[in-house]
């Protein structure tokens, strides 16, 4: 499905990023991954870069290496995000700042550099991994939900800037899935939220792959600034 395509995934070393990494590799893509930690993957079609996406200088330096080695990027998956779920009145300021720095500015830093490489080929697919938190606004997720909302607004605005370069920008608003991030949250908090969904179950990896593949498809050239929410959220 992705033969000859270069895919960049942020936050690729664990959770949904790792699931997506394996999905794209299984479908013949060359995958580049970012995370703050060292990470080794057995596939020769994967290269990892240790980078803090919240640091614009680090991101710019890494993209110089990518430009030299790969020339272009076809698909960017903005997956990296940090989450601290806590009541606002007792949320540590540093945790709130980190969410803004990584989720919003980090996404901006990476997207800005990636689309420069997409521009050369006059082709690109930017896909944000959004969250049900943005729509459901759950207790404890004030900053996280706001950051996901900001990511969507940002990418939709970029979609207008980038349409003439044949670059589309879309968001997959996912529900909860079994990941390290979910494990940070108490199940007694998440389970009731899941029960209230139109389709009241946790997401499976295939649910996410299906929506990502749709936006990533070359056939989706007339679809931009859109969000697909899983599980019936609207």
């Amino acid at each position: 499905m992705y033969t000859g395509k270069h895919v960049l995934i942020t936050g690729s070393s664990k959770g949904i990023g790792l699931l997506l990494l394996n999905h794209f590799l299984a479908n013949s893509a060359k995958v580049i991954g970012f995370s703050r930690n060292d990470f080794v993957h057995q596939s020769a079609d994967y290269e990892h870069f240790k980078v803090d996406i919240g640091d614009a200088k680090q991101v710019s330096a890494v993209f110089k290496q990518i430009a030299k080695k790969y020339g272009h990027i076809d698909i960017l998956i903005n997956n990296a995000a940090v989450l601290t779920s806590q009541y606002a009145m007792i949320m540590p300021a540093g945790n709130a700042e980190k969410m803004v720095q990584t989720n919003i500015l980090g996404t901006f830093n990476v997207t800005r550099e990636a689309v420069k490489l997409m521009r050369k080929n006059a082709y690109g697919r930017v896909i944000n991994i959004g969250s049900m938190a943005e729509k459901l606004e759950p207790i404890g997720d004030s900053v996280y939900a706001a950051s996901k909302s900001a990511m969507r607004t940002m990418i939709n605005s970029m979609a207008k800037e980038l349409a003439s370069f044949h670059i589309t920008c879309n968001t997959v608003g996912i529900t909860a899935i079994e990941t390290d991030m979910l494990n940070q949250l108490p199940r007694e908090k998440v389970d009731p939220i899941i029960k209230q969904l139109t389709i009241p179950r946790y997401a499976a990896p295939a649910d996410i792959f299906n929506a990502v593949d749709f936006f990533a498809s070359a056939d989706s050239s007339y679809i931009t600034a859109q969000t697909i929410y899983l599980g019936g959220i609207n």
Binding site: A67, R119, S164
Partner: peptide, 13 residues
């Protein structure tokens, strides 16, 4: 303006 942006990006590189 978008063409100017594209020109700037190309020139920087």
């Amino acid at each position: 303006s978008l063409s100017l942006v594209s020109l700037i990006v190309e020139l920087e590189e």
